[in-house]
């Protein structure tokens, strides 16, 4: 399986900021060889590089688990904060409030999101905090050696043979239900789709949930697993082919056959071009999104692509009606009311 091969562009290639891909890399991965997470890391590097986001204006947040280690492996020039298990959403929320200018990317796992952190996941979505929320989903706990997680499919088997009898938490279904404005599912080995979805997420102004099945080569890649490379490949049903036309490159050359594509505009003017596959899928239709998730569940399919998009909802910092400058950068003169204000308060208590 060639899942860890990173597509490397020519060394001299520079993005619109004049930065090379090198500027988007991080420390060396300490994950198992062949881990799906490393492929996701590679696509994150590629997507940020190609979109031309200044890495120094990015914050990386994560919880605990194999997935949560990965922010150390990309965008080394960005500040990162890796805190406690399942609480990445609260970190994203606080960082957003403190500095609205920073692009926030959060990496979580299925245990981190669907078990210990399910509450924070839901409330992050309700608030529509601007963060690219990646769930590196492998259905098992890796660091503690292979216990089932809450996204393990019903009927899937443990490495030791035990069958999971509980239904999975479907993070995409839940995200749609909670009003998330960007819900996508992908596969760590589907490089092209994953990169396109990541790029689209970078352009989104609100919570963007990407549930990426990312097989655990050590604990959950056996024949009876539904989160293995083979099973995922065999059962993947992409909703569409995806391409991104960034807002700074409106003339980008993309081969479009009339009648076969659907264009969706993102928050900042970038466009997603969705190429129709088997049936026409409208990602802006919430009812259809819910139906598709349910149908694929019943059919045992692994549905990937942009499941739902709503760019109209205001992001959390917009709802907070904050000043344009980051709160973190405000000087004392703008944070401490003047003596007249204190006099007024004191008078009201006399």
């Amino acid at each position: 399986m060639a899942t860890t091969v990173t597509p490397k562009p020519p060394a001299e290639k520079k993005n619109r900021l004049g930065l090379t891909r090198e500027a988007y890399t991080g420390g060396k991965s300490t994950l198992c060889s062949g881990c799906g997470h490393d492929s996701i890391t590679a696509q994150i590097i590629q997507a940020f590089f190609e979109t031309g986001v200044d890495p120094k204006n990015v914050v990386k947040v994560s919880g605990i688990g194999c997935s949560s280690k990965t922010p150390a492996y990309f965008l080394g020039q960005a500040h990162g904060i890796n805190a406690v298990h399942g609480r990445m959403p609260s970190l994203a929320t606080g960082a957003n409030a403190a500095n609205r200018k920073l692009k926030c990317i959060g990496v979580s796992g299925d245990g981190d999101t669907a078990s210990i952190g399910l509450g924070q996941f839901c409330h992050l979505i309700r608030r529509n905090v601007e963060v690219i929320y990646i769930i590196e989903n492998n259905g098992v706990y890796g660091l503690t050696k292979g216990q089932f997680s809450a996204t393990a499919d019903m009927g899937t088997a443990h490495k030791k043979g035990e069958i999971n009898e509980m239904p999975p938490v479907d993070c995409c279904g839940l995200a749609v239900e909670l009003g998330c404005g960007f819900v996508a599912r992908s596969f760590s080995a589907d490089f092209k789709q994953l990169k396109a979805l990541l790029e689209a997420a970078i352009h989104h102004n609100g919570t963007a949930v990407l549930d990426v099945v990312s097989p655990c080569v050590t604990f959950n890649n056996h024949p009876a697993s539904t989160k293995s490379y083979k099973y995922s490949k065999d059962h993947e049903i992409p909703l569409h082919d995806i391409d991104i036309i960034p807002h700074f490159e409106p003339q980008a050359e993309i081969h479009i056959e009339p009648g076969t594509t659907r264009e969706v505009e993102l928050y900042d003017g970038a466009k997603i071009v969705l190429k129709k596959l088997e049936e026409d899928y409208d990602p802006t239709n919430r009812a259809q999104a819910t139906q598709s998730i349910e149908r694929s569940r019943q059919a045992g399919q692994f549905l990937t692509g942009l499941i739902y998009l709503d760019t109209a909802r205001r992001s959390y910092v917009d709802q907070l009606h904050l000043v344009d400058e980051p709160l973190a950068n405000l000087p004392q003169s703008r944070l401490r009311p003047d003596p007249k204000a204190l006099d007024e308060i004191m008078d009201s208590l006399k």
Binding site: V59, V61, H79, I81, A83, V84, R87, P89, S90, L91, A92, T93, G94, A95, A97, A98, N99, L102, G119, Q120, C122, H123, R127, V317, L320, H321, L322, V323, D324, P326, L327, A328, N329, L330, R334, L335
Partner: peptide, 28 residues
Amino acid sequence: KATYAVIQAEDELASLGMVLSAGWAGAR
């Protein structure tokens, strides 16, 4: 516009997570 953000969190655990990352990012 406001020079402050007040966030009613889902629990106290999330409250402190938000406060710590905000403090980490430079807010009071």
